[in-house]
Structure formats: C-alpha cells, structure tokens
Amino acid sequence: MTPVLEVKNLCHVYSVGTPFEHTALSDVSFCAHRGEYIGVIGHTGSGKSTLMQHLNGLLKPTSGEVLLDGKSIWADKASTRQARFRVGLVFQYPEYQLFEETVYKDIAFGPGNMGLSKEEIDRRVREAAGFVGLSESLLEVSPFDLSGGQKRRVAIAGVIAMEPEILILDEPTAGLDPSGREDILSNIDAYRQAKNATIMMVSHSMNDVAKMADRLLVMRDSLLAMDGTPEEVFRRASELVEMGLDIPEVTRVFLKLRSLGLDVPMVYTKEQAVKTLTALKGGVPNA
C-alpha cells in the first residue's frame, strides 16, 4: 500500500540570519497511510506544531519534502492549494477563528473556498455538523452565543466539511471538561471510520493517545525521537519520562504491579486493564 502522506528529511529554521534564528525541525521523515490514527506527542517547543503546519503547506520547509500521493505539495501553485483542502488542519483553540453570523455559514466557509456547488456545500455542512453532534436547530444560531465546547465543535466541523483525507488536530481537547473530551474524541473517530481518513492528533494527554491512536510519533528537540505503536512507545517509559513526557496512568499502575511480582502484561487503556484484571480473577468480562 502506498502511503497517502510522505514526509522526507524535513527541516525548518525560523528567522534565518537574525539573532532569533531557531531550528524547529531537523531531518524529520515518516509516512502515513489511509485510515491510520496517529498520535503526536512531545514536550512544548519540540516542533509538533511546526511539523503540523508543514503538512498542509502553511509553512514552507527550509529543506526536505512533503509528498501527497507521491507528489510534492510545493511542485506548483495548484498542488499547494490542493494540499490545503486534502489535509485539514484544526489549530489549537480553534473556536477563536469563528467569524460568521451563523454556525451554518461558518462551517460553509471552507467548502465555499473550494468552489463547490451550493447543493454540495449544503450536504457537507449538514454532514459535518452531524459528525460533531451539532443539532439542526443550532445551525442558524450565531456561533458567539454557543458554549465553549459547542464552539470548538463548530470549528472542527468547519474543517471536516472540506472532507480532508488527512485530518490534523492540534490538541483538540485542551481546556474541555471530561465529557466534552470524550465527545470530541469519538466525533473524530466517527469521521475517520466514515471516510477512511487519516487522523493525526497532537495531544498532551497520554490517556487520550493511548486510547485512540494506533501509532505514535514522539517529537523531541526538533527531532522525531520515536515512531511506533503505543505498545512499542510506552514500553520505553523511562525515556519518555526523561523527555518530560509521561505514560498513561493505567500503564503506571500495571508497571508497579509487575514490579511487585504480579505477572501481568503491559496495558495502555482502561478497557485493556478491565479485561486483564477480570481474566486474572478468572471471570468473563461483562462489558
């Protein structure tokens, strides 16, 4: 299977030739396949956000390439513009970018820029609103009258409505309450399953990435430090801690159990934990 997105030896240096020169990315390479759910973790300032902004052509690499279906997104103007639509990027606190009079118009901004027909825009807006769980009645409301969590969903719907093949989210759950987090995470997964889209989620919550992602990228000081399944990554717990990162809470509990001499496998999510523990008790999981 050929990867949909390929990043080759990407480097980025900010403010070249000034006293503020600063390398944000050095020699980052990876590829992403359709339908993959990739979690991106790393300490603040490790280059995650810079990396994300390269994938849809908002930033131009100092050196290296970003390929979509094997073609560089900087090959010509049309490819760059296409990259904007094929790779949807949801920024941190996206609710601050809302500007239209109604929720409907705001979600329609992206598809409108794609030059789609009115019917197609209408279909996409309604579908996107459905994905993030916004009811029809909310579509005609001003986005500024909504609650914080609802605003966030409107902003995510605004990107989903462009039906990107790759959806990148920079800390989509930051500042939300636990039920809001759950909702947004399941909304994103619903979109992935419906469109077989690739998801890349930047997060500081190890619990979230352990639960959702089937692959993890770990950034450290502008380098891609690790790339593997959550199991492979969280196995290197001590390295993660040294980077100022963490491992999921349940993993820590199970590591402790192992050090106390209980023969349990490594566990990364609550669901796995429940299964393992019920099996240990000799019972059958009921949920």
Partner: peptide, 13 residues
C-alpha cells in the same frame, strides 16, 4: 498570524 494561518487552512486566499 495565528488567525491568518487558521483561515488559510480553511482555504482562505
């Protein structure tokens, strides 16, 4: 800068 990037990501020109 941030808002411009966010709107560009939605295809604003």
């Amino acid at each position: 800068d941030k808002i411009m990037s966010a709107q560009k990501a939605r295809g604003a020109d």
